[in-house]
Measured scan of single mutants.
Amino acid sequence: MAASAHGSVWGPLRLGIPGLCCRRPPLGLYARMRRLPGPEVSGRSVAAASGPGAWGTDHYCLELLRKRDYEGYLCSLLLPAESRSSVFALRAFNVELAQVKDSVSEKTIGLMRMQFWKKTVEDIYCDNPPHQPVAIELWKAVKRHNLTKRWLMKIVDEREKNLDDKAYRNIKELENYAENTQSSLLYLTLEILGIKDLHADHAASHIGKAQGIVTCLRATPYHGSRRKVFLPMDICMLHGVSQEDFLRRNQDKNVRDVIYDIASQAHLHLKHARSFHKTVPVKAFPAFLQTVSLEDFLKKIQRVDFDIFHPSLQQKNTLLPLYLYIQSWRKTY
């Protein structure tokens, strides 16, 4: 089996927390979720979201995140109150960019949308954001926290390059993509939290790379249903696996070995980020709550012996909000 052949990389499970039942964490995340308004986002309300009498641009960002990046939404709820709305805006910006690729039928249209967001970032730093909910909220975040323009532009530029429907040539190319998107998002989150620390940035770099790799793995069944495969070609070739094997949902050992190798790289990034947690300011830990969902996925895929098409991998963990709150309460990542 794939797991038994390579099992030495995987460390002990961390979500089991001995003695936790003896201490009762304060009510927090679930209460916040219940208090949030929840009407559906419609095209009509989106168009009017920044106008008078609408929910408001902040509510639009929150709803977009809740629907399109639920794990990011849950993590954002546990940030300090003064930072929450800015991170909602930042993550909503990322969602807007991420959904361009799947929402257009022609690359030219995707490039036009990316050009809109490039100009939007430029206009935000000229205090002239367009009348668009996410743009307005992002402008507020930039003004409030003096966010670095370079990180925002890196996210747009990398998403634009990724409009080509090509597999990553190697794991390094996937890591570079993750660094310029997910890690950049974390650098900006640290700025919102008021953290300027080399060790925190180092952790953000590795956690962002782990996030990018896990996202690529999780999306494999969806991409396969659209006749697309984006997994690193070098690892596929190493194990003699073709793109057609993934399109046919082949579950042979060599296919699972490909998934094992890729998942192991995410695991190593996560492990390395945690190896120097004592040197990272505690104030930075809330920015890294996504490690909970990353670890949850890596454990699940290990349990199914790296069968990327196993139905259990597509099921939401209903206990994730609780695990996130516990992680926040324990002040760790």
Rank of each mutant, 00 (worst) to 15 (best):
Y125P: 00
R226W: 10
F288M: 04
L78I: 13
V87F: 13
V100D: 05
E179G: 00
K101G: 13
P321C: 13
D245V: 07
C216Q: 13
L79M: 13
S183Q: 00
D234F: 00
D261I: 05
I207Y: 02
D201T: 04
Y323H: 14
D257K: 04
R256Q: 12
A98T: 09
L320N: 03
N254G: 15
Y325C: 13
A203F: 01
N94K: 04
Y187H: 08
T291E: 01
N94D: 05
R303V: 08
L198K: 04
S242I: 03
R248H: 05
A178R: 00
E106M: 08
N162I: 04
L62Q: 11
Q132M: 13
Q182C: 13
A200Q: 01
E191F: 01
D164E: 12
L79S: 13
A284F: 01
K316W: 09
E96A: 09
K253M: 15
H223F: 14
D257H: 10
D252S: 14
I171V: 14
S50G: 09
V292R: 11
L174K: 01
S83W: 13
A92Q: 00
A219P: 01
R249C: 15
S103P: 07
D296N: 06
R144P: 00
L90T: 07
P311T: 09
S103E: 13
L147C: 04
H145E: 03
K67G: 07
L185C: 07
P281L: 02
R84N: 04
R226Q: 14
Y187G: 01
H267D: 10
R303S: 12
K331D: 09
V214C: 15
E137Q: 12
A178N: 01
P80G: 10
Y168W: 12
M233S: 08
D197A: 08
L78K: 03
R113G: 07
V241T: 09
A49I: 15
G212K: 00
N254E: 02
S205A: 08
H145Q: 05
P52G: 11
L188Y: 02
E175Y: 02
F309P: 00
A284V: 07
G208K: 00
H59Q: 12
G51Y: 14
R68C: 14
N254V: 12
L147N: 01
F288W: 03
Y325D: 02
A178Q: 00
S242G: 06
Q327K: 06
C75I: 15
P232S: 00
T279M: 15
L74V: 14
Y168S: 04
S183P: 02
V104Q: 11
I109N: 15
I155H: 05
A273E: 00
I109P: 12
R330L: 10
R248N: 05
E244L: 04
Q211S: 15
R91Q: 08
K161I: 10
G194C: 05
H59I: 10
A47N: 07
Y333N: 00
E82M: 13
A266R: 00
L324D: 01
K119M: 05
R226I: 13
T120G: 07
P130N: 08
R330T: 11
L185R: 03
R169E: 07
P232I: 00
K149I: 04
L111G: 15
T181E: 02
Q265W: 11
I259A: 07
S83G: 14
I155D: 01
Q290D: 08
L185M: 12
G194K: 09
A167V: 13
L62E: 06
V156N: 00
A287S: 05
K316S: 11
F93Q: 00
R330F: 08
I109S: 12
V280H: 00
H277V: 10
F309Q: 07
F93T: 01
G224E: 07
L298T: 03
E96D: 09
D164K: 13
D157W: 10
D157G: 13
L193V: 08
N317K: 09
C61T: 15
I259Q: 01
K172A: 14
F93S: 02
M114C: 10
Y333C: 03
K228C: 14
L147S: 01
H239F: 02
D127W: 01
R249M: 08
L97Q: 04
L62V: 14
D257I: 04
V100N: 06
A273S: 11
Q314P: 06
P52R: 15
L289P: 00
I235V: 13
V156L: 13
G56I: 15
I195K: 00
K140C: 03
D123K: 09
A89C: 04
L247M: 11
H199P: 05
L188Q: 02
L147V: 05
S293V: 14
R227M: 10
Q243K: 03
W151A: 05
L147M: 07
L78Q: 04
I155E: 00
Q251E: 15
V87P: 02
C61N: 07
L111W: 14
K149G: 04
L152T: 00
N128A: 15
Q327C: 07
L294R: 02
E137S: 09
L294P: 01
Q302D: 06
L64R: 09
Q290M: 09
L198C: 05
A219C: 07
V214H: 03
A273G: 10
L322M: 12
S293N: 10
I171T: 08
W55R: 14
K107N: 11
Q302C: 09
R274K: 06
K172Q: 11
Q99I: 09
R330I: 12
A287Y: 01
V255E: 04
S45H: 15
R113P: 05
N162A: 11
S85C: 11
P311G: 12
L268M: 10
A49Y: 15
N176F: 13
R150D: 05
H199L: 07
N176K: 13
I192P: 01
K283I: 11
D305G: 08
R248F: 04
L79Q: 11
V304H: 08
L147F: 05
Q132L: 14
V229S: 13
V156P: 01
Y222A: 15
L152H: 03
V282H: 09
E96H: 08
I213M: 10
K119V: 04
P52K: 11
R144Y: 09
Q315A: 11
K172R: 12
Y70G: 05
E137G: 08
A135W: 01
Q115N: 14
L198A: 05
G110E: 10
S85L: 12
A141F: 00
L97F: 01
I262D: 03
L268Y: 09
V229W: 04
K271P: 01
H206D: 04
L79V: 14
F88L: 12
L79Y: 15
I109A: 14
I136W: 12
A266D: 00
H269A: 02
H145F: 15
Q265F: 11
Q132I: 11
A284M: 02
T318Q: 11
P80I: 02
I259F: 03
Q182G: 10
A98I: 05
T120P: 02
L74H: 02
D261R: 08
K228Q: 11
E82V: 12
T220K: 03
A266S: 07
Y60K: 06
H310C: 06
R218D: 01
D127Y: 05
Q314L: 12
N254K: 03
M237R: 06
R330V: 08
K196I: 05
F93V: 03
P52Y: 14
W117Q: 00
V292W: 13
K161Y: 09
L138D: 02
Y70T: 08
A273P: 02
E158Y: 13
I155L: 11
T291M: 07
H272P: 01
V229G: 05
E175S: 04
N180Y: 10
Q132Y: 15
Q265K: 12
L238N: 14
F230L: 15
T318H: 14
L111C: 11
G56L: 14
L313N: 02
K299H: 13
T220R: 03
K149T: 03
D252A: 11
R249P: 07
G51F: 09
I155V: 10
T181Y: 04
F285E: 02
D305N: 11
T220Q: 10
M237W: 09
L193M: 09
T220N: 03
D164W: 13
F230S: 10
L90W: 03
V121L: 10
A266W: 01
G194L: 01
E71G: 07
Y333S: 00
T332W: 11
D257F: 05
E96N: 08
V258Q: 01
L190N: 03
